[in-house]
Design a protein around this nucleic acid. Structure first.
Lengths: 108, 108
DNA sequence: TATATATATGAATATATGCTCATATAATCA
DNA sequence: TGATTATATGAGCATATATTCATATATATA
């Protein structure tokens, strides 16, 4: 659900450069097929790096690099268990954005 | 409002490559400060290319190139009036996605 | 302790991207 | 019609990005 208190007051035209840059970075993070696939795999719950790599057509290294990027932008979170690291989607904003865009694509 | 009929049935894990690619293209389109600024300027209503260029720190050519990209992805629509071309946000999905992401940035 | 397994990191490279410049196209006006 | 204004397009270039390979780090196990 949207935070009306925040959004009712903000005119996008007046956004500071820094905010625009951060938004751009976030969208850019979602703008890559490998990263979208990773997110899709995490949609139903957490997975280890190796599990993700097994389901993708890129190296473990590539997956790890991309996970770091997603982590730095708070798009995914991680927890360590022994020598494995489990990744998951960070919050519901991410699910929403993903879903809305999928809608935008599928409808029309 | 979300189209529940569509989204309730779709498991992101099962998305076809083509859908993933199109989603990536859409997010990529939003993943650039110049294009985000253009969208921000269109948030309150349509504007001509020249008007947009006047408010941005890039050339008219750059704005035109970016508008073409946004147009090809149905993110903006345009109408011609004499020798001017007015651009506007294409639909409310776009506003939603923009707003959600802004939220994601601002909250925390 | 030595070896194996899971993940992360840095360097190198090929490709993609965004910009400007020059110019084309289209519409208005003198 | 000729000049001016608004927008679009193509080429070229500098920077950003995604990948792999080699290797480092950390944990588990024999």
């Amino acid at each position: 659900m949207m935070n009306e208190l925040v959004m009712e007051k903000i005119d996008p035209e007046l956004l500071a450069d820094e905010v625009i840059m951060t938004m751009a970075d976030s969208f850019k993070a979602l703008g890559d097929p490998t990263r979208l696939r990773i997110m899709a795999l995490l949609f139903n719950g957490e997975r280890t790096v190796g599990d993700l790599a097994d389901h993708l057509s890129v190296s473990q290294s590539a997956v790890s690099h991309q996970l770091r990027l997603l982590r730095n932008l708070d798009i995914v979170r991680h927890r360590k268990d022994g020598r494995e690291v489990y990744y998951a989607l960070a919050d519901d904003h991410i699910r929403d954005i993903y879903t809305r865009t999928l809608e935008h694509i599928l409808i029309d």
